[in-house]
Amino acid sequence: MSATAKNNILFRSLALQLFLNYKTMQGPGYLFALRPELRDADEAKIRAAASFINGHPVFSSAALGALSGMLREESDDVRLESLKDWKRQLSTPLGAIGDSLIWERFKPMLLAGVAALLLVLGDQAQAWWLKLSLSMIVVYTGGLWWFRSWAFDRGVELKGQLTGLAAHAGLPRLRKALRVLGLLGAASVLAASASRFAGHELLASLQFAAGFLIMLAGAKLRVSTLTAAFFTILSVFSLYFLFHS
């Protein structure tokens, strides 16, 4: 496949969630991304491309690579039916690995880092916001674009054996690195936010601690962010009246 064709698919895959629906989830989005490859395809191949799949949008690049390779080959109805099953089975690993690495670590880690820096900068935050935001967007989208391209090539290479990527040697190292970076991101948010109140005013420090503990308790009790925030505001008022009574 030419670099132009590959980049065209990857670019169109940015709209993978455009047709997200309950019946076929991202399936029609896959068809949208692969459409330049399927201009002359028959009905069976088009319906196979649009069949059910639901994975992480970035990790889906690997599935797109594999699918584009498989759809180029000669296929009969039986083979295309098994392709639909393969797509369905791929949803769980694609979603689980992508969500755990990108949605749960990489993305929030960058956002938390920028939030912490803006808190530390205080009055200078407005002047630095644009530089910090642009750097964050470049690192995030640039990193993910590189990964999309790499994963697409692996997909083309592995085709039906794509699930073998889950055993990639780099994955445990990546998880370990993200664990350390996540820890540093969370600690920097805690340090930056606590330093704004601790040592300055007792009431504000207590209100900060109350919010922190209520959110932890809320997570333990599985209540929504709305409920946790409501109880935080209630505790903030209670502490204020306690101090001024």
Binding site: L190, R196, A210, S235
Partner: peptide, 15 residues
């Protein structure tokens, strides 16, 4: 301070 504390806890929970 209250909601910033909640936000710091949310960051810890997520990361």
């Amino acid at each position: 301070p209250g909601l910033l504390g909640a936000g710091a806890a949310a960051a810890m929970l997520q990361l």
